[in-house]
Amino acid sequence: MGMTGETFPAITTRKDAVVAWGQKNSLWPMPFGTACCAIEFMGVAASVFDIARFGAELVRFSPRQSDLLLVAGTVTFKQAPILKQIYEQMCEPKWVISMGVCASSGGFYNNYCTVQGIDQIIPVDVYISGCPPRPEAILQAVLKLQHKIENPNTTPPAQFKVKEPTFDY
């Protein structure tokens, strides 16, 4: 593209590859922040960690303008219909990151009022562990989601595969 010495100024590629390249580098996240994980997400968006390096810095607070739902925090049963409605208001294509153990599994709130993982309500693309997760973990989740957008039908690469832990009690 415009390099010196080229005789034919064009490249060939597939259409879905170009679309995926654009989508993965311009994720507009909507933070569904209900607890301390949302505070940690502010640290990711701020200058030290700077999620803008990965193209996901334009935080929208409307589900209709965003394509990445970032569920950060504990979701109670009272909150569950609200989360489902917000997910349904987002336009396709859309992705979901479950941030922290509370959103992913209920965390230590093994009680009467907390949903034991938002995947009981909405589909989740990437889970992040931690209480709250370090900002590096959120950046890794964004990278993992970018890989998923680019390769929609492949399994995750080897560096993201974690051996299932075995517990010998």
């Binding site: 009272k78 219909p81 093994n110 009680n111 009467y112 949903v115």
Partner: peptide
């Protein structure tokens, strides 16, 4: 303590 009840709306 773990008896959970879903909310419809």
């Amino acid at each position: 303590i773990t008896r959970r009840q879903w909310l419809s709306a």
